Structure formats: structure tokens, C-alpha cells
Simulated scan of single mutants.
Amino acid sequence: MTTGQWGIRVPAQEGEATRQALIGEGALDVTLKVLHDGPFLIFAVLAERDGAGWYEFGEQPGREALPRHELVGGIAIMQENDPAGAEKILANRPSLHTVLFPTSEVSGEYRTRDYRVLAGTDTTRTEVTEHGRRFVVDLAGAYFSARLSTERHRILDQVNDGELVLDMFAGVGPFAITLAARAGVVVAADLNPQAVRLMMENIRKNRAANVIPVLADARHLEKILSWKFDRIVMNLPLAGTEFLPEAFRLVRPGGTIHFYSLVSETGEHLARIRELGGAGVTVTEREVRSYSPGQWHAVYDIAVG
């Protein structure tokens, strides 16, 4: 059995020093095996941190096997409705306060899902630490994916100082607040009032004074905003394609659109992107992560000519 978990990848010669340091911090997940990746070792850690990636780890022999789950801040999300297993997770992970089981898929225009509390505190609210930033999330009230942490920093590395950035589907603000470290101004829009309330809380918590929260349908942003943007983030994987025309109208010549989508084949949206952007666009497509058998989360980085 494998478990998806954050991991730190280090050269093998630094392995023992890293292991001891993680134990000293109380950060090492001792229930999972160390992965071997050529000249590197990957240690499972209890929470996302600088340099961490998402890996599949085997259970550690001699340790009590825990049911498969995913960690989001102080919450574990199980894949099975197993109250006894939830109690076992809670007992073995002192940093957690709640174990949840999803009772629906992500759906609706607010991108939310329903949960059942299997163990611990009766809440879907928690705080996630990501590269030194803290985000309050409510898993039942607004969409949040901890697995996009690496993507947020990949895009941050591309942002030039002073850029005008638009996050069309900002949720609780993780992309917007991350990019605000370099951008001049970030406009962060979302249709979900609960997401915008949480985003405003996260803006204050991270002192991101250059993020402007906007409660609005992305279809109407062109009527609300008078700017053209240097960079636009579109993280609406299930329905983002229908908003591509708005993104092309809002991006300035020479700007960039980062369009995320769930796809079943390589190049699935290239024809539509080139139809909207014309001969001047340059598109790079890459897989972000596997989503389900035959489907994956992809990002199209679109440079507008």
C-alpha cells in the first residue's frame, strides 16, 4: 500500500544529516519508507515546506499501517468511509485535529464538495503553511489544492517586478498572495462569497497589501476592470475553457496566460488556444499531476504575441 505525502529530496550523502534534522524538528513522517531515486533520497514529512514535492511512499515495516489519506494543514482526508481508520490516523499524527471523508465530488460554480467528519474536531476549516505563507481554508466552503504549491512558485519565478497580474478564479488566494511577492498589483477575483471572505482574511494574515479581492463572475471582468494585464492565472480545471475568450481580451500584447485544465489527451486545447490567440501565440503544455486513470491536470503557458 502506498500513501501520497509531501517529501524532501536530498543527495544520498546528506541523507543521515537530513533525517536527524527532521526528527529534531518533529517533521519526519516515521510511518513511511524513505524513497530511493538514483543518487537521491526522499524523506516523507508531515506538512508541506520549502523544497517539498508530492510523492507516493510505502508503509514503514514495523509501524502500524495507516489507511490511505491526504493531508491539508491539520486535516486528513481519507479515501474510504472508515471511522476506525480515522481514529488510527488521528492517534498516530499528533499535528492533526480532524479526519474527513468526502461525500461528493468537487462540483458547482463554487467548486465545493461535501465532507463527513470521521474523527476529531467537527470542522472543515484549517490553516495551511506553504513556503512561509499561511492560508486559512475551509474545505467545504471554498476550493483549495495543496498540490499546486510547486506550480505557484514556478509561476512566481517568471513574474517580473511590478507586473499587473489577474487571478481569474482566486479561491482563498494562494496564487494571488504568492505572486504578490513580485507583482505590482494582483487582482484576485472569485464568484464564491465564502472564498472571497477567506481570501481577505489571508491577505491580512500575509500582509499582501497589493492584492485586490474582487467578488465577481469572471465573465464580467472585462466590464469591471479597465486594465490590461501582464499575466493571467486561470485555475478552473473543470470548466476553464469557456473563459479563454475573456482571458485573451484582458491580457496585454506580450503578456502571458497560465491556463489549467483537466485533459485526457496531449494537446487537447491547443486548437482552441490558437484560434483565439492567432498566429502570434506561443504555447507550452506540461503535465502538473495525475488526476485519475486516463486524465491529468495540465497547464498551458500561453505567450501572447
Results as ranks from 00 to 15, higher is better:
Thr150Asn: 14
Glu151Phe: 04
Glu151Val: 04
Glu151Leu: 06
Arg152Gln: 11
Arg154Gln: 03
Ile155Phe: 02
Ile155Val: 15
Ile155Asn: 00
Ile155Gly: 01
Ile155Thr: 06
Asp157Cys: 01
Gln158Met: 14
Gln158Phe: 04
Gln158Arg: 14
Val159Thr: 03
Val159Arg: 01
Val159Glu: 02
Val159Ala: 00
Asn160Thr: 14
Gly162Ala: 02
Glu163Met: 14
Leu164Phe: 08
Val165Lys: 03
Val165Glu: 00
Leu166Glu: 05
Asp167Cys: 08
Asp167Thr: 11
Met168Val: 06
Met168Ile: 07
Phe169Cys: 12
Phe169Gly: 07
Ala170Asn: 07
Ala170Cys: 12
Gly171Pro: 01
Gly171Tyr: 00
Gly171Met: 06
Gly171Glu: 06
Gly173Leu: 01
Pro174Cys: 08
Phe175Gln: 05
Phe175Leu: 05
Phe175Ser: 07
Phe175Lys: 13
Ala176Pro: 00
Ala176Phe: 05
Ile177Trp: 01
Leu179Glu: 06
Ala180Cys: 08
Ala180Gly: 07
Ala181Glu: 12
Ala181Gln: 13
Arg182Thr: 09
Ala183Met: 02
Gly184Ser: 07
Val186Lys: 06
Ala189Ile: 10
Ala189Ser: 15
Ala189Gly: 14
Asn192Asp: 12
Gln194Ile: 11
Gln194Glu: 12
Ala195Gly: 12
Ala195Ser: 12
Val196Gly: 11
Val196Ser: 14
Val196Met: 10
Met199Val: 10
Met199Ser: 09
Met200Lys: 15
Ile203Glu: 08
Arg204Lys: 12
Lys205Asn: 14
Asn206Lys: 12
Arg207Trp: 03
Arg207Cys: 06
Ala209Lys: 02
Ala209Thr: 08
Asn210Ser: 11
Ile212Ser: 04
Ile212Lys: 14
Pro213Ile: 03
Pro213Asn: 06
Pro213Trp: 10
Leu215Asp: 04
Ala216Leu: 04
Ala216Gly: 05
Asp217Tyr: 10
Ala218Val: 08
Ala218Glu: 00
Glu222Gln: 13
Glu222Trp: 09
Ser226Cys: 15
Ser226Gln: 13
Ser226Pro: 14
Trp227Thr: 08
Lys228Ile: 02
Lys228Ala: 10
Phe229Ile: 11
Phe229Thr: 11
Phe229Glu: 03
Arg231Lys: 12
Arg231Trp: 06
Arg231Phe: 10
Arg231Tyr: 04
Val233Glu: 00
Asn235Thr: 10
Asn235Gln: 05
Asn235Arg: 10
Leu236Asn: 05
Leu236Gln: 09
Leu236Thr: 08
Pro237Leu: 13
Pro237Asp: 07
Ala239Ile: 13
Thr241Ile: 13
Glu242Gln: 11
Glu242Val: 11
Phe243Cys: 03
Phe243Glu: 01
Phe243His: 11
Leu244Ser: 08
Leu244Pro: 03
